[in-house]
């Protein structure tokens, strides 16, 4: 017989992190066993880079002195990690549907652990996607010109932004009744956010009435920040004359903080009240 005496766990933060890690490991095992996740995390980023670099690369004129491949990589990185964050929503909804949330909620584990684990494993998925995309990017001629520290800074900013989106998605996943609904819902939100941004075409090419949206769209800010940190904009390039584009790193971090402050408590509350039916 196994000794089943369980040590008392006093520190709630430590407990939330330990339990979160256990849940995250469960999610990470799946990358090996669920082909859809593997494709989504590892294969589609490669496709995106190649597709945009070779199919649209020549067709889209991004202005004088700009190399579209260089210009594009930042946008593809941003779009991919934001889409990656939607995993949290679908996975949460699936866990609800299949009754795992009930099982978890009947265990004496930290109330935030399932969410910490879920959003945490999304970060790992995103790190993998970024590595793959970075390597593919190098192959097609993309470079980070401002050195390793700034490059890592760009990756960190991408991950932080995606992490915040994960919490929004996790919340939606908990309150929406099914996986299909969440997939459609996230599509409706994420598509305009990423496509009505400077991720794929320069901000200047948008018609006037869309311009303010594009300029203040946080996805534009992340993309702008990443491009600057990678040095993917030509010498003497001037960022558009709006505060969000002049200070893209600070603006992005502001969004990260704002989203987390709102959606972490909302999600934990939704989890506590979650009911399968």
């Amino acid at each position: 017989m196994t000794d089943l005496r369980i040590p008392e766990r006093r520190n709630p933060v430590l407990r939330a992190l330990t339990d979160g890690w256990i849940v995250a490991k469960r999610n990470l095992i799946k990358i090996k066993r669920v082909p859809e996740i593997m494709v989504f995390v590892l294969i589609s980023p490669i496709m995106f880079v190649l597709l945009f670099a070779y199919v649209f690369g020549g067709a889209i004129d991004v202005g004088p002195g700009l190399d579209y491949k260089e210009f594009l990589i930042g946008g593809i990185f941003a779009q991919t990690v934001v889409f990656g964050a939607t995993f949290s929503g679908a996975a949460m909804a699936e866990d609800m549907q299949k009754g795992f949330i009930d099982r978890f909620r009947s265990l004496p584990m930290a109330r935030s652990a399932v969410l910490i684990g879920r959003t945490g494993s999304d970060v790992v998925y995103n790190v993998l996607s970024l590595i793959i995309m970075g390597l593919t990017g190098l192959l097609v001629g993309w470079r980070a010109h401002h050195g390793i520290p700034k490059m890592l800074g760009a990756f960190a900013l991408l991950l932080a932004f995606a992490y915040a989106i994960s919490w929004i998605m996790a919340w939606i996943g908990l309150i929406v009744p099914s996986v299909d609904v969440i997939n459609n819902a996230s599509f409706i939100v994420i598509m305009p956010l990423t496509f009505v941004s400077n991720a794929f075409v320069p901000l200047e090419s948008f018609p006037g009435f869309l311009r303010p949206f594009v300029e203040w769209n946080p996805v534009s800010a992340v993309t702008q920040a990443v491009r600057e940190l990678f040095g993917n904009l030509p010498d003497g390039h001037r960022a558009p004359d709006v505060w969000s584009m002049q200070h893209p790193v600070v603006y992005t971090l502001g969004w990260v903080v704002l989203i987390m402050v709102i959606f972490v408590p909302l999600s934990v509350q939704a989890y506590q009240r979650a009911s399968t039916k």
């Binding site: 369980i6 040590p7 766990r9 256990i22 469960r26 009754g99 004496p108 584990m109």
Partner: peptide
Amino acid sequence: YAAVDEYLTGYENLEIVGRLYG
């Protein structure tokens, strides 16, 4: 409805529950 994670092995399913009990 059985809350069994179909992508995990039987062992992994139970091990996780044990860990979450502390």
